[in-house]
Nucleic acid binder design. Structure first.
Lengths: 205, 205
DNA sequence: ATCCGTTCTTGACTTAAGTCAAGTAGCCTG
DNA sequence: CAGGCTACTTGACTTAAGTCAAGAACGGAT
């Protein structure tokens, strides 16, 4: 199925230029390093609802999201899905532990929109890590920050009510409601869809 | 997720030998790399309740815990502490994002027991990353796994009751109850101390 | 369009966990 | 070996969020 893509990217950047800008926000990238990064990341398009990884598989690649949304989710004993992470434009997705160590992933990853990504497989990843120190640092940066964000969200779940967290989301990330179904936002917030619906009704009154 | 306890260090290993064993569990370490790792990590002892980091400070070092327990915690708007992570023997602690990027930490880290650690500061860390590829991979491994563990715990909070999570902890990590005060375990589980107390009463009946 | 399967909403009711308050038991430290 | 500080427990009560069930609204496929 052909996926309509909305080029150009912001500022007319190509996907690889957007990735390089993302890297340059975090570390210095030399001209030679740029060439290697461009050569290693492959552009790929994913359909809405397409899975790039299912629990138990070995993660085939990490992906820089040029434009789109992906969710990580686990499935509990009763078959209920728990969304643990949402990744939008300019974020990375993939189970790095599974990719690096060749072990089964503990979660699944699915696109929620038609998504344009730049993918890097284990061979490319190992090669780039050995050749391009700057890239190593980008991955450190991204992973360390994601880890801290996850801990912050976990702490917020205990210290704030669902309504307070909803209001915060509405203030800081309103676009999420245009791009992600409410039942998935509810799961990601750690509440039931009915509860989210009632909170929204309450607010708009 | 079982917590290893080594009293004393396994096979009478010195702290640095224990660290090297930890690295070798994950990646190959050459003789030259071993020398550099030994030279970079400094042994330090911390008192019970001592902080190695307070929110807002720049994290001064990362630490490999030879023996002891540390907790990461945030403080919410009402001054209530939320424990987000517990790290025992043979784990790493420290806010890597703060350490690597020189930015303010978003949480505090405190020892819950007298703790023996091997510390590595930013200079040592940058040097080791440039010199010792094996060490880079150890840090990737540790951080990626910690990230996945955090996501799994977050998902469990939604899909299981506090009592189910308590029973799981009791099964897989009973030693935690010998080493960490109940009010901190409660906070880490995302429940109130009173609730934990009632769950425990119920179980032992 | 119109059908079908989601997603979302709403209502009535239940319940797990939180809150407040009081008391007990440990434990350092002087 | 008291005194005071915390940790922990217990009881009574409240409440936020979950559950179950039914209908409405939306969106993709035909």
């Amino acid at each position: 199925m052909a996926i309509p893509i909305h080029y150009p990217s912001p500022g007319g950047a190509t996907p690889h230029e957007q990735l390089l800008n993302c890297c340059r926000d975090k570390v210095a990238v030399s001209a030679e390093e740029e060439v290697m990064i461009r050569a290693t990341f492959k552009e790929r398009h994913f359909a809405r609802n397409e899975h790039i990884l299912r629990v138990g598989e070995i993660c085939p690649f990490s992906v820089y999201i040029v434009r789109g949304v992906m969710r990580d989710y686990t499935t509990d004993a009763d078959g209920v899905e728990q969304t643990t992470r949402l990744a939008f434009d300019d974020y990375f997705s993939g189970d790095m532990h599974s990719l690096s160590n060749g072990v089964a992933s503990v979660y699944s990853i699915q696109c929620l929109e038609e998504t344009v990504g730049l993918t890097i497989d284990k061979a490319g990843y190992d090669w780039l890590f050995a050749q391009v120190p700057a890239f190593t640092n980008v991955f450190h940066y991204v992973r360390n920050r994601s880890f801290n964000v996850a801990l912050q969200l976990m702490a917020e779940r205990s210290s704030k009510s669902a309504e307070q967290r909803y209001l915060g989301l509405l203030r800081e990330n309103p676009q999420i409601f245009q791009r992600v179904p409410l039942k998935i936002i509810a799961s990601w917030m750690g509440i039931q869809p009915e509860t989210l619906s009632r909170i929204r009704k309450n607010i708009t009154l």
